[in-house]
Design a protein around this nucleic acid. Structure first.
Lengths: 123, 123, 123, 123
DNA sequence: GTGGTCTAGACCACT
DNA sequence: GTGGTCTAGACCACG
């Protein structure tokens, strides 16, 4: 399992971990029953605090994507990957909405916003 | 000068103020030498903390859009409004770019991203 | 607001805080919109780490009992206190069930368990 | 010797072993000098880690219910089974007491606690 | 002032 | 080895 962390980003590290693991689940690279790396192992691998990894795993568990067994480890739970996709689309929607609002607040016309978007999408 | 603040928004209040004042400058409704409302007056008008207004004015000053004269008030600085527009478009570009990247990282197809964008733009 | 922490207990500190705040809500001593003490203030008052208090508040928020506003504080959310009571009864049920199971596993007869229970209840 | 382990239970596996062996002693099914199954054998039989069995035997030894002879095995020690019963009842008492206290702390009336208890006992 | 995140290391319980 | 909890203090963003 390969995760990429950007410490410079404004997105919290633990959230980056959560996002990427969710994506791995959705893509089928992580399946029900798979063992996630131990908190300590992953923290060393990513060169971050064990507590930060723990926080990510806790979040995954509280959202129902993982279960942890004391003394044994953390495992991928049974999930409806369709629901997961829906959730991720929702997040994208929020981000796009926010960008559009910001553009409008700055007085940029919708046409300009659209052409900028199309330009970026084609790159 | 009329500003609109949404406290429920995820965008920080001070940033909303900065954005809107920049837009007023770009549109020519605020010109070099114009006096911005005092921190106290604006904070009462918008029913927010004076510190928040101060933070917005500080941000404008550090970006070169305003100058504060101790004991007198805050004034609009001399600016090339063309450059301002360019700057605001740049910010929008960064936000859109980031949203698109995130969507792709989650495996969402470009077509889906586009249709979501169009949907939001038309609302 | 007065909370009592037992560090010697096997129950995690943050869970003790969560339990007690839930109880205060159920009893009506904390109502919708009430301001919880700030993380730092409560941590000093209870002489524990601020992170531990934060963890308790996070748990309350994820369960829907509180909402926190960045830079402002943590507040009691609108809750159906009936549901809260139901939840707490559920916990009691689990604890009693566990005790009964343990007694039986040790070969203690139900009558003995009952008489012990009655004795304790009357103290 | 037949032991029943519930891995899904919240009670630690090693504790389940300890409890059940104590009960077998109290009932007279295990007597002074009897040979307990070897760590390896029992761990295979119960499909659990050998370390877990070892921990249970260690606990029994430290409480004086068993003695381990290096290279030979683990044997039941001489015990007053009456005292054992007393000890197990004491543990049950502590658990019940704790559950009752917790219920009361949450404001649940004694009658409710009792009816819940009776319900569980009859299941 | 507030909350949000992160660190580095500690101690404990369970396997 | 594993996860669970806690500390003491740091830096950041928001009001």
């Amino acid at each position: 399992m390969r995760l990429i962390i950007q410490t410079s980003s404004m997105v919290p590290i633990y959230e980056q971990i959560v996002d990427q693991i969710k994506t791995l689940i959705r893509k089928g690279e992580l399946k029900e029953g798979d063992n996630l790396p131990s908190v300590r192992v992953l923290s060393k691998e990513l060169k971050i605090s064990a507590l930060t990894v723990k926080k990510a795993y806790d979040a995954l568990e509280s959202e129902g994507f993982a279960v942890t067994v004391h003394g044994k480890g953390t495992y991928i739970a049974a999930i409806n990957s369709g629901l997961l996709l829906e959730e991720q689309r929702k997040e994208l929607e929020v981000d796009l909405e926010r960008a559009i609002q910001k553009g409008r607040r700055c007085g940029i016309r919708d046409e300009e916003i659209r052409s900028l978007f199309e330009l970026l999408l084609e790159e």
